[in-house]
Design a binder for these strands. Structure first.
Lengths: 124, 124
DNA sequence: CGGGATCCAACATGATACTG
DNA sequence: CAGTATCATGTTGGATCCCG
């Protein structure tokens, strides 16, 4: 009883996943960290389009989510290294799945026809 | 040569996936459609918090991405039905993976400690 | 019933300059 | 080097009213 419409209160893990690994920059940041610890400056060079501001903000969020760690070496000039946590390493498979589905999606649509909603997701 | 920094131009499928199934409403809409075709009014009842405007916008995007179809029955009062396309049905597994990773993430963090970034993703 | 049109608030992101 | 601070803009979502 009470399932009259079975309303969806599906604040599901999907949202969580998107919140943690989604967005414009986090996938690239995480991808950059898969190969090992990186310094702030390295990340800006690996992801040239990102601003310092956004990199800082995204790194702080990832850190708060315990997906990465931030290690400060007390020295001059300053050195800070970012690394994936064990939890952070579990993102690799999910990113991989999302990547694959995204490519499948793009390929499927590319075959049958070619119109696009925003600025062509497959442009680069 | 030329791979000096191996810059990440990873406008990868991850972004595509997020663009198609991500966001605040699309997962719920897709979930609602997994069980079969739904009318506009049904969807608003299944997802009470969504506004008509957002439901319309999201449905249009999903339609343009060929994830769903929109069938208009010419009659009075008007009747419109939304259904998943075959491509749309392929989202089920990826949504499932994202769901599972999101729950794993939440559980992992819940055990060791309890602080949160935004308004607790696991609140409901 | 199933929207479209308009206006507005909130948030995400960008540009630029400055600092310990 | 690794940020912070400030300001401007873009994008998203909500509220409300109207229409075939």
């Amino acid at each position: 009883m009470g399932q009259e419409s079975s309303v969806i209160h599906d604040k599901c893990g999907v949202e969580t996943t998107i919140a943690v690994v989604g967005g414009k920059w986090k996938p690239m940041i995480l991808y950059a960290l898969l190969s090992g610890p990186r310094r702030f400056g390295e990340l800006t060079r690996l992801i040239p389009e990102i601003t310092q501001r956004m990199l800082t903000l995204q790194l702080r969020e990832l850190e708060e989510d315990e997906v990465i760690t931030r290690e400060i070496y007390k020295q001059v000039p300053p050195k800070v290294e970012y690394s994936l946590t064990p939890l952070g390493r579990t993102v690799e498979p999910i990113l991989s799945f999302m990547q694959q589905w995204g490519e499948h999606f793009t390929n499927t649509r590319a075959t049958s026809e070619g119109h696009s909603r925003d600025q062509r997701r497959d442009e680069l």
